[in-house]
Every structure is written in C-alpha cells, then in structure tokens.
Design a protein around this nucleic acid. Structure first.
Lengths: 139, 139
DNA sequence: CGGTTTTTGTATGTGTACAAATCAGTTTGG
DNA sequence: CCAAACTGATTTGTACACATACAAAAACCG
C-alpha cells in the first residue's frame, strides 16, 4: 500500500547539479572569457604536473579521449599549448603548456579562485567546507 | 606579503561539480537508456505542469530557447511529446506529453528516483539532506 | 618468439548548452 | 492608432561530452 511517489524535479540532485553548474559557468565566462572552465582545468593541470601525453592528461582532468582531443586542439589553436610526438612511444602525443599558456594561467589564477568563491558566495565558510567535502565523496 | 596561492584543481567547486555530474549521468543512462537526464527533466515537468509553450517549458527546466528546441525536437522524434501551434498567440508552440510519453514517465519515475539515490549513495540520510539544501542555495 | 591484448590517438555521430542574429507576432506608450 | 519595445521561435556557430569504431604501436604471455 505504498503511496505513488510524486517526482519533484526541483528536488533531484541531477537537476540541482545542472543548475549550480550553469551558474558557475556563467560566472567563469564572465570573469575569464579567453578560455572555458574545461580548458582552464587542462591548463591548470599542465601547469601543475608539467607535460603529459594527451590520454594521460585526459585522465588527469576526467575527460575521455575524444573530449580531451577537442580541448587540446582548441587550446593549441589559441597557442596556449603545443603537442609534440613522443620520442620513445610513437603512439604518444606529448602536450605542453606554451609560454603564452603559462602567462595566461599566471594572470588568471587569482580570478579563477575568485570565481570558485563567487560560486560558493551564498554559503558561509563552514557551509562551504561541508559542501566541498560532501561533493568530493560523490566523485 | 601574501603567499602565491597555488591553485589545486581538485579542490575547485566547478571541477567537483563536473565530476559528480559525470557520475550521475553515467548512472542515469545505465538505468534509463531511452532518454537523457535533460530529456527526462522536460518530460517530468510536462507531466507535472501540463502543456506549456516551448519557451515557458524551457524556463521551467532552466534551458535557453536554443537548447529546449533541440530537446523538444528529439523528444518529438521519439513520439514522447507533440507540438501544436497556439490558437491565441500565433508565435507560440504548445508542447504536450503524448500518451507514449506519459507511459514512459510512469514506467520510469521509480527508476529515476533510484538514480538520484544512487548518486547520493555514498552519503547517509542526514548528509544527503545537508548537501541538497546547500546545493539549492547555490542555484 | 610470435600471437593476443592493451594502449594511444583519431574520426564520426548524437546530445546538451549558450551566444548572437533574425523574423514574426504581440503589447505598450505616446 | 501606430511606432517602439518586447516575446517566441528558429538558425548558426562554438564548445563540451560520451559511445563506438579504427589503425598503429606497445606490452604481455605462453
């Protein structure tokens, strides 16, 4: 004799995630129009880890092979990264940050951190910490 | 004399949101392959609110005009919704759920709720409530 | 050693997602 | 009442995001 569960769209995690992400993307593209959040993630990873093969890079930023290829292509077109064939392994394509890419990163990190803060702005410090910890566990 | 803040990609909200969303999408498409989360949101909204003009529908599910058009087109192609010109306002296109769409919704709501649960599975009841409340405030 | 399996990169197709431009129709204000 | 402002829908262009399929190279293994 269970009641028919009525589905409330606005109470579904997926829907909330999509909307919060929308807001975050809007903040980011307003603050750093040169690159997308996805592209920035790749730049940040390269800045932190140094040159990586395209596939490794993809894994390091949670993008599949097809997606990372497109992102790298677009970053390369902007001159922010370069690709070079690997000497040892002929299948590999090593992706590196260019000087221009490093300059862009250095010049926008601060702003990017501000965007993260802006996204979390409605919450106080303790709440932010809780949210981040909970999100991290849903990964 | 502030320390240069080092940017930790894995600690950024945007990155976490993307990864949690990825996991959620994977769960959903595994459980309900017929439609995407986006399409399901539209169906759910129509089931709850009844026929709406395309633009209104878009707003009701947080999609812009171009996006909702694509989603409605694909749902129409599957026979899950129909569109009809509005009698009163000639600009409007009324979107309604078909019988088939209603059947699909009725037959998958339970599973969809299960997907929401699955996404939150790593958290206990109290934590889920906290997360949902915090996410709702970031909208 | 030689064959099977994996890995890497690439290509293609489908589906969001948004900006910007356009056009038709509706509403409003002078 | 009519021009101006607004709204609804569509189109185009760019950018993820993943599935699938493929070729070449590398790793593994019996």
């Amino acid at each position: 004799m269970r009641k028919r569960p009525h589905y409330v769209l606005d109470d579904q995690v997926g829907y909330l995630l999509r909307r919060v992400t929308q807001r975050h993307l809007a903040l980011f593209s307003g603050a750093i129009p040169q690159v997308t959040t996805t592209q920035f993630a790749v730049i940040a990873r390269l800045a932190e880890a140094g040159p990586l093969s395209q596939n490794h890079l993809g894994r390091a930023v949670a993008m599949d092979a097809a997606t990372i290829k497109g992102v790298v292509d677009r970053l390369a077109r902007q001159g922010l990264v370069t690709t070079a064939p690997d000497a040892g392994d002929k299948r590999r394509l090593t992706v590196s940050l260019t000087d221009q890419g490093q300059v862009l990163f250095a010049g926008t990190v601060q702003t990017a951190l501000g965007v993260s803060e802006g996204t979390l702005a409605p919450l106080d410090g303790a709440e932010r910490a809780v949210l981040m910890a909970l999100l991290a566990r849903l990964t």
